[in-house]
Amino acid sequence: MKIHWMPIIYLTAHSEPQVFQRAKDTSPAAYLLKPFRHNELAFQVELAYLNQYNNRHPTNLLGSEKLYLPINKGHEKVAKQDVLYLLAEGAYVKVYMVGEEKPHLLAMNLGYLAQYFSTANFHRLSRSLLINLDHVSRLERSQLFMHKQPVPISIPEGNRVDLIKKLAVVRTR
């Protein structure tokens, strides 16, 4: 008997958090909600296959300081230190970079991309947000500001304590 591992992609109309959590516990390659777009489904199947191949043929590049991200119909070299934050939006991830007005939109999930940002300066602020702590310029009670970004990022109340532990915050008495 031969075992062949294959990625699992959920395609469902169930968007309830508890259903998603149960699916997430099985480590799926993707979780797509109906109605779906045909090109989105094709992208997710291709990524699931690629991710399975990469996970079965690991490289030592996860710790690399530079990545080649799928940008503009090719792969563009990106220094991890120039990444401000990664924001999940459905089956996509927006990559905000230092000195760039618009984010790069990548057709993949944040869970997969986050493995390439596993160093201490990157912090998972929420299920949909991974920030580079080196670029936090201002911290307020319920929000933070990233380097030269005009729009603040909301801090989930339950994650505030963990964030403060990662930053050298001087408190008043």
Score class of each variant (00 low, 15 high):
residue 77 K to Y: 03
residue 35 P to M: 06
residue 114 A to G: 02
residue 13 A to T: 11
residue 141 R to D: 09
residue 43 F to I: 10
residue 75 H to N: 08
residue 48 A to L: 04
residue 99 G to T: 04
residue 37 R to K: 13
residue 105 L to P: 07
residue 66 K to S: 12
residue 131 I to F: 06
residue 102 K to G: 08
residue 108 M to H: 04
residue 7 P to E: 03
residue 82 D to M: 07
residue 91 A to D: 10
residue 153 I to P: 01
residue 157 E to S: 13
residue 121 N to H: 14
residue 150 P to H: 13
residue 75 H to Q: 12
residue 82 D to K: 07
residue 96 Y to I: 05
residue 90 G to P: 01
residue 133 L to H: 11
residue 158 G to H: 14
residue 156 P to Y: 13
residue 9 I to P: 04
residue 23 A to I: 03
residue 7 P to G: 06
residue 84 L to M: 08
residue 83 V to F: 06
residue 125 L to V: 06
residue 78 V to I: 15
residue 59 T to Y: 09
residue 83 V to M: 05
residue 28 P to E: 00
residue 12 T to Q: 01
residue 101 E to R: 11
residue 98 V to W: 02
residue 16 E to R: 02
residue 130 L to M: 04
residue 95 V to A: 03
residue 173 R to V: 09
residue 109 N to P: 00
residue 20 F to L: 07
residue 109 N to E: 04
residue 139 L to A: 07
residue 77 K to D: 05
residue 150 P to V: 07
residue 149 Q to E: 15
residue 150 P to M: 12
residue 146 M to R: 01
residue 122 F to R: 00
residue 21 Q to L: 13
residue 173 R to W: 12
residue 131 I to Y: 02
residue 148 K to I: 03
residue 65 E to D: 13
residue 46 E to S: 12
residue 115 Q to R: 10
residue 105 L to M: 14
residue 137 S to P: 08
residue 158 G to P: 02
residue 159 N to V: 03
residue 140 E to A: 11
residue 92 Y to L: 08
residue 41 L to T: 04
residue 22 R to T: 11
residue 58 P to Q: 13
residue 156 P to V: 15
residue 129 L to R: 07
residue 121 N to C: 10
residue 120 A to Q: 09
residue 95 V to Y: 01
residue 44 Q to S: 12
residue 142 S to E: 14
residue 19 V to I: 14
residue 133 L to N: 10
residue 28 P to S: 02
residue 172 T to L: 15
residue 123 H to R: 07
residue 100 E to K: 13
residue 158 G to F: 10
residue 155 I to R: 00
residue 88 A to Q: 04
residue 69 L to D: 02
residue 123 H to C: 09
residue 160 R to M: 11
residue 97 M to Q: 15
residue 120 A to Y: 02
residue 49 Y to F: 15
residue 145 F to Q: 03
residue 88 A to G: 05
residue 38 H to K: 13
residue 154 S to L: 15
residue 173 R to H: 08
residue 1 M to V: 11
residue 89 E to N: 11
residue 166 K to Q: 14
residue 103 P to K: 01
residue 124 R to H: 06
residue 102 K to L: 12
residue 126 S to T: 08
residue 48 A to M: 05
residue 74 G to E: 05
residue 53 Y to E: 11
residue 53 Y to M: 10
residue 31 Y to R: 00
residue 12 T to I: 05
residue 2 K to L: 13
residue 91 A to T: 08
residue 49 Y to E: 15
residue 17 P to F: 09
residue 81 Q to W: 07
residue 46 E to V: 06
residue 104 H to R: 14
residue 11 L to V: 11
residue 57 H to V: 08
residue 36 F to R: 03
residue 146 M to A: 03
residue 147 H to Q: 13
residue 44 Q to N: 09
residue 167 L to Q: 10
residue 116 Y to R: 09
residue 144 L to D: 00
residue 144 L to G: 01
residue 59 T to K: 09
